[in-house]
Nucleic acid binder design. Structure first.
Lengths: 217, 217
DNA sequence: TAGATTGTTAATCGATTAACAATC
DNA sequence: TAGATTGTTAATCGATTAACAATC
């Protein structure tokens, strides 16, 4: 594996989880080996790009043979940091927060939801999947005392930066942000945005483009 | 506005909703005019890129003055296809489906949820925001009869392609896909994915990178 | 060994940035 | 008019693709 301080381009990072998804499927189907050409057919990236991408992190293949599905899958898991567990909290337990909590709880191995926080007294005291909803005022201490790695932000736009500041001060490592704004954080804190509005607007753009193309004919 | 068949790069498309978001904020704050330099400061793209991006669609500014916030906001709305309404259905009314339904209903003007579908008899017959949950078997006819534009797919991985095929046959224009796979659709159908797993794995990668960098010092 | 396929270098393509003429 | 700032062309940079030598 190459030096960790070689900055990996964003384009590659975005492709990694996709490689993982397809390799996982192949693995489940019992496929043992795959060549960059076969993978290309499946994923839709060029074989050349696949080889380039993988070689950013190391030589995982074997000339004349291809890649062993299982070991490549494991390598990518390791690259993605999925070979460990993350202590995770959710902030903002409204509709979306509850759904994301359940989603993460049931489907995301390694991301352990250990705390839920909200300001709404109607929610504080309730439990979701046996995890208690605590008052927001307790969050800072909780993050420090339990060495929380990741916070999932599901509060509204207006409060998201304030929540973020508290999390950063308490030593959070990563934020999965569902609030529709770009958070201001120091460099050592990772932020991944899920901007649902932006995504829906992108869909709208594509539909409009298709319609224009149709009417051009 | 330039010809609609000039293919707009994906990079630009992804930036458009972000322009919209910042312009909307400025508009709400009562800001009347803005230069590409000021906008650059705010959004974090270079002024040059902003001018390039906007000029892909037309000359919306005025030399020596800048851009009028209100009219630029309106132009971008139009470019994004947000100057119309979309008849929308949600397929798969589990936890995530319900959350997305509520989210879209309350926050997304123009995306009118007019139908909900599921196979679960416990859900069929219920209402969310006064919209009835119907059995999946009724979906195809419903889409045809009501000229549905957009379907939001919140079913599981296993059923997502099957659901998609029915939607495509019924004449859907766009799909907002929350299932963790890449759907196979004809070219005239727009698909926008929200791959929550991929997003979380990207966050994991970034956290790991930061940790490696830290330990390198 | 011969064939296959990777790993890697070189070429190409596209996107971003810089520069500046046009013009409000 | 002078100053400011866009719109647009040219230069640069980075990412993708092609080619092929290395090697299993």
């Amino acid at each position: 594996m190459k030096s960790s301080n070689t900055k990996v381009s964003n384009a590659i990072i975005r492709r990694l989880p996709r490689y993982r998804r397809y390799l996982n499927e192949l693995r489940k189907q019992g496929v043992k080996k795959i060549s960059s050409n076969e993978l290309s057919e499946l994923i839709g990236y060029t074989a050349s790009q696949i080889r380039q991408d993988l070689n950013t992190f190391g030589g995982f293949g074997q000339q004349g043979y291809g890649y062993t599905v299982d070991s490549l899958f494991n390598e990518i898991n390791r690259i993605l940091g999925l070979d460990r567990e993350y202590k995770t909290i959710v902030v903002g337990i409204g509709n979306l927060g509850q759904a994301i909590t359940n989603y993460t709880y049931y489907y995301k191995i390694g991301f352990n939801i250990v705390g839920l926080f909200d300001v709404n007294p109607k929610l504080v005291g309730l439990s979701i999947n046996d995890v208690l909803v605590r008052d927001f005022s307790e969050m800072s201490d909780f993050v420090k005392e339990n060495n929380i790695d990741i916070a999932i932000i599901c509060v509204n736009r207006e409060n998201a930066q304030k929540v973020t500041n508290v999390l950063v001060d308490a030593g959070i490592e990563g934020i999965w942000n569902f609030a529709p704004l770009d958070l201001d954080v120091p460099e050592h804190v990772a932020v991944e945005n899920v901007h649902l509005s932006d995504s829906l607007h992108t869909l709208s753009f594509m539909i409009r483009s298709n319609e224009l193309e149709e009417s051009d004919k």
